[in-house]
């Protein structure tokens, strides 16, 4: 009986020892020396791995932060200012200035505005539709409504509105990680400067067709008439390829342009209902 006990103790012990030696040797052989600051920086990052910074994940971004000398171009769109400052302190480098951004959907072609011209019968994917044809509406620029941006969002900040069949961004949840912008095959979503009280004013259309054609396909299309350009006191609006664009950096939210638009393509969001004549500084 005692033989059995002793034997098993010896055998198991020897096996354990052998395994330990092998593990130790392998760990020595394949040991990778890493800058310990990478781990420290990664601690501060949100671990969302959204890719909004342009790197494949938080770890890769942390490595980039440690390796690069000038980190003023590197931003984590999800982190707040405090944690970025902490990272800068760990690394002893200068942090760039952060501008809060928010995703904005630049299409208002709901079915009542932009009538459907055909029925799409295929896999629900914006990418597949846009490579096949113009989509269910006549507008070759508009939203395809299959919600690839919704799938791309890691923060539950963008949802399809069942009535308009358009995606809507919840500003508080949006981290401006850029995932939806990349996901949209039509480049409809844009990251714009976040203003006070989430106020926004933008041209909700990216149609570059001539006015008549654009109007035929969608009632709220920008027809490139240029009225908004003339009325803007800050030269924030440019007209290119039959399409007006409001530069978020120049715009001071004076709201003069919106009433001018004959197709109501310029949207004002989160402003008080009563119209003010004077400019409100953003």
């Amino acid at each position: 009986m005692s033989d059995v006990v002793i034997n098993s103790v010896i055998i198991v012990g020897a096996m354990g020892l052998a395994a330990a030696i092998i593990l130790f040797m392998v760990a020595q052989k394949f040991h990778v020396v890493e800058d310990p600051r990478i781990d420290q920086v990664e601690e501060e990052l949100p671990a969302a791995n959204c890719g909004g910074c342009g790197y494949p994940g938080c770890r890769a971004f942390a490595e980039a932060l440690v390796k690069t000398d000038d980190i003023s171009d590197l931003h984590c769109p999800v982190s707040d200012k405090d944690s970025m400052e902490k990272i800068a302190a760990i690394l002893g480098k200068e942090m760039g200035e952060m501008k809060p951004l928010v995703a904005v959907v630049r299409c208002a072609g709901s079915p009542d505005k932009s009538p459907r011209t055909n029925i799409y019968d295929g896999t629900h994917s914006c990418t597949i539709i846009s490579s096949l044809y113009t989509g269910e509406t006549g507008c070759p620029y508009g939203c395809l409504g299959m919600g690839e941006c919704v799938d791309a969002c890691n923060f539950d900040a963008i949802h399809m509105n069942a009535d308009t069949q358009l995606p809507e961004v919840t500003d508080d949840l949006c981290t401006a990680c850029n995932a939806c912008v990349v996901a949209c095959p039509r480049d409809i979503i844009e990251l714009r400067k976040k203003n006070k009280k989430d106020r926004k004013i933008f041209v909700s259309c990216i149609n570059e067709d001539k006015g008549g054609v654009a109007r035929k396909n969608c009632k709220v299309a920008c027809i490139g008439c240029g009225k908004c350009v003339k009325v803007c006191p800050y030269e924030a609006i440019t007209l290119e390829n039959n399409l007006a664009y409001i530069d978020p950096d120049k715009c001071r939210l004076c709201r003069k342009c919106a009433p001018e638009c004959p197709t109501n393509a310029i949207l004002e969001i989160n402003f008080p209902v009563k119209k003010k004549k004077e400019a409100t500084a953003g």
Binding site: I119, G122, Y133
Partner: peptide
Amino acid sequence: KLITVSPS
């Protein structure tokens, strides 16, 4: 009636 469009 609207016609159908689908990938091949």
